[in-house]
Computed example of a mutant assay.
Amino acid sequence: METKIWKKTELAEAAKVLKKGQLVAFPTETVYGLGADALNEKAVSKVYTAKGRPSDNPLIVHVAHPQAVQNYAQVSPRAQKLMDAFWPGPLTIILPVKPGQLSEKVTGGLQTVASRMPDNALTRELIDQVGSPLVGPSANTSGKPSPTIATHVYHDLHGKIAGVVDDGATQIGVESTVLDLSTSQAAILRPGKITASQLETVLGENVDTSEHHVAADEAPKAPGMKYRHYAPDKAVYMVKDEDWTQAIIWAQSQLEPVGLMLSDQMIEQHQLAGMDFVWPLGPNGVSAATKLFSGLRNFDDQKDVKIILVAEMSHEAANAAYNNRLAKAAGQQYFDAQEMMEF
């Protein structure tokens, strides 16, 4: 299959292909999504095949208008409050699904469905032209770093999907906040740009932010909860601020280059500006989130690099999404000078 990269002016062709049951990747403000008609079970099945995604991992349904969610989900008053406040935007809401309205391929066999309205006018227009909501998991090989530009999608999925609509780089760089409203207490299942305090202000109630673990025989309610995610093929280690001096000394002692991903301040402090194998993450966790996946992909594509060291950010709400994705990419592993002597 030839995979096309469509310009904004070619949106009608992309919509036509989606109507025929093919797969098309689309841009959002977070990452690129892999689109299929959410009401076409055969098309949705192709998403799992293209990504190599476990079939019990539910898909997020993307809509162009908030009222569209009522066609397939039970929208509560508190869900409506959040839609009014944050849509379009990087918030996914999990609600009870209306019986018989969506395939189990979409819901992962659960009695709930995840929905969001992306803050990308081009994609909302695409959904309108298709005339159906679109499922939209990240448009990458399952488990790998999510795509933030169209060429990332092409790298992973060329020959497996019909095409990708190119709208440049995404603005946020990590996936949406996932909020479970199917239970009595609202709970964040995946952190994103929208924080618990923002949600609590609108809801007028506490939001559970505890880490949710999924058993081996349990279906996850949201993407990214159960399986290894966001990881390149190379080994990734998180580095705490106080360990960077040792980490840099260790990296410079290796025969093969080591990828270093760290903040602008750390680059300046350790006089690394302009050096090879250094990927700047910007001044803070927000900028780091936009650059994390592209940096991991950059070093993953460099044959000589076997190890990537990445800066952990301070543990505050604004950095939660970045630290969450990094921890999953690193398999929770931290740089330890003694242990790294094995390499």
Rank of each mutant, 00 (worst) to 15 (best):
G159Y: 06
T201G: 15
D128E: 15
T201A: 11
K144L: 04
P145G: 03
G109E: 11
S103I: 05
M225W: 00
P118I: 03
H158S: 14
V113G: 09
A196Y: 08
L189T: 00
T112W: 08
A222C: 07
S142G: 06
L157S: 08
Y227G: 05
I127M: 06
V113W: 01
L134Q: 03
G168S: 10
N120F: 01
Q111T: 13
Q111A: 13
I127S: 06
A139C: 11
V174R: 09
T201I: 05
D217G: 12
T177E: 07
D119K: 14
T123S: 15
Q171H: 12
V130Y: 04
Q198I: 01
T112V: 10
V214H: 00
T183I: 11
H152G: 07
A121S: 13
E200S: 11
H213S: 13
L199W: 04
L126E: 04
K105W: 02
I172S: 09
Q129M: 15
T123L: 12
K144D: 01
S103Y: 10
L181R: 12
P191K: 01
E211I: 14
V178P: 01
H158R: 15
D208T: 03
M117G: 09
D119W: 05
V164I: 14
L102Y: 07
D128T: 12
A121N: 12
H152M: 11
T209F: 13
I172Y: 11
P147I: 08
V113L: 08
S138D: 03
V174D: 13
P232F: 04
V174I: 14
G204W: 07
H229G: 05
L179F: 14
Q129F: 03
T195H: 06
